[in-house]
Design a protein around this nucleic acid. Sequence first.
DNA 1: TTTGTTTTTTGAACGTGTTCAAAAGAAGAA
DNA 2: TTCTTCTTTTGAACACGTTCAAAAAACAAA
Lengths: 235, 235
Amino acid sequence: MKTKKSEETRTRILEAALDVFRERGFEHATIREIAAAAGVAAGAAYYYFESKEAIVMAFYERSQGQMGPQIDAGLEKSKTLEDRLRTIISTKFECFGPNRKLLGALSAHADPDHPLSPFSKETASIREVDIQFFSRAVMDSKVRLPANIKPYLPRLLWMYQMGLILFWVYDHSKDQRRTMILYEKTLKMILVTLKIAGVPLLRPLHRLAAELLEVIYGEVPGGESTQKTALSSED
Amino acid sequence: MKTKKSEETRTRILEAALDVFRERGFEHATIREIAAAAGVAAGAAYYYFESKEAIVMAFYERSQGQMGPQIDAGLEKSKTLEDRLRTIISTKFECFGPNRKLLGALSAHADPDHPLSPFSKETASIREVDIQFFSRAVMDSKVRLPANIKPYLPRLLWMYQMGLILFWVYDHSKDQRRTMILYEKTLKMILVTLKIAGVPLLRPLHRLAAELLEVIYGEVPGGESTQKTALSSED
DNA sequence: TTTGTTTTTTGAACGTGTTCAAAAGAAGAA
DNA sequence: TTCTTCTTTTGAACACGTTCAAAAAACAAA
């Protein structure tokens, strides 16, 4: 039974953890310190969270939840694909901003089998919600892409955004200026690329890309499949 | 003084570690187990290696050293850019093959500040040797690229290769078939892209790419700079 | 050989994330 | 209230990576 008090304790621990993380950095923060700050025993943290890193994950999920409406509203207003992508990505930068470095604790997991990896089946639902934003951004926009590539576009854009965020997390430059330039330039490049995607010259690239995407994401456009991991494998 | 015996003990520990890693996997292998297998006390490992992960790094360096001549010989023989790139990349897959999963222990570090990150200043010399291979591959090949992009090509190809390897490390498919397809298709795509890079239609992309690369790598083509990290920042 | 110096090895101890049996508390049911 | 059951909390204990003072071994100079 989900009692009120229990949920309160959970957030108290989460909040305390975020404080300590911000102060000491993720690695130097100790569970005992966090527990003390939350006014509970060390073991209590493990009643609510699977691991130290899972606390960061909880923060991530919570942020994602809070971003949802904000992104929805933004997408409502903006009309062009560029505006929509900017809405999604900029919102993330803003919301994660105060805890930017914290995300470094999660980016340690490239392994899709690790529960906390952005590509794991455990994080599938978070990821799917996220990809949905990009689906909406692409939907009824003027992009004309070959039918065998278009279905993958939202996932590719999500991947792009993950890369951007990763760069951002470790960007030491003032106000993460370098990330902003990366953002600006690469976004333009993507839009230009989508714009000229129709020219016959690029046909060979399309073919290759389509073949590749089908294998990597293991899906034919229109077919159904139970894909759980971000880059599904059928081993 | 570097005694013979000392070096021998070091490799004994390294070899024992690799055995245990292969058997138990990196995470489940314990230092005490490794030390026991090497016939030394637990602390001894730390006389020779900075950390458990540093042992994997040592393996990486050693492999890199062994690959060098092999790649050199291969580059000598092959004439086209495609052949050269295949030589470099395939050699890596072959050499790392038996210890593929081990590299996962290193890929945990996206943080360029971490000593064991592929992008850190500590690993700069390894990285530079590696990038040299790609320089040789590009050198006196028929690729015609704008002068403001071409200098970055070796580093971009190195980055591409790192991505491939990362995918490979976590590829569960039989014989890493999916990675091989990714390899095949993306390599073709890169070659096609380089081939058509000259057409005027792509001019806007060139401009954006050049501006971006200059900021990210912090270098003007021809200027000197003391870049230490893989994606240098001037904060 | 003896003495002094440097390199190597040891293993106990530390700090940390994590586990878990047991205690404490909350919520009904009587 | 008292008994029962479920949830929450505790804190000692564990395993592991790592440190380090001290012992041992190797070496150099006399």
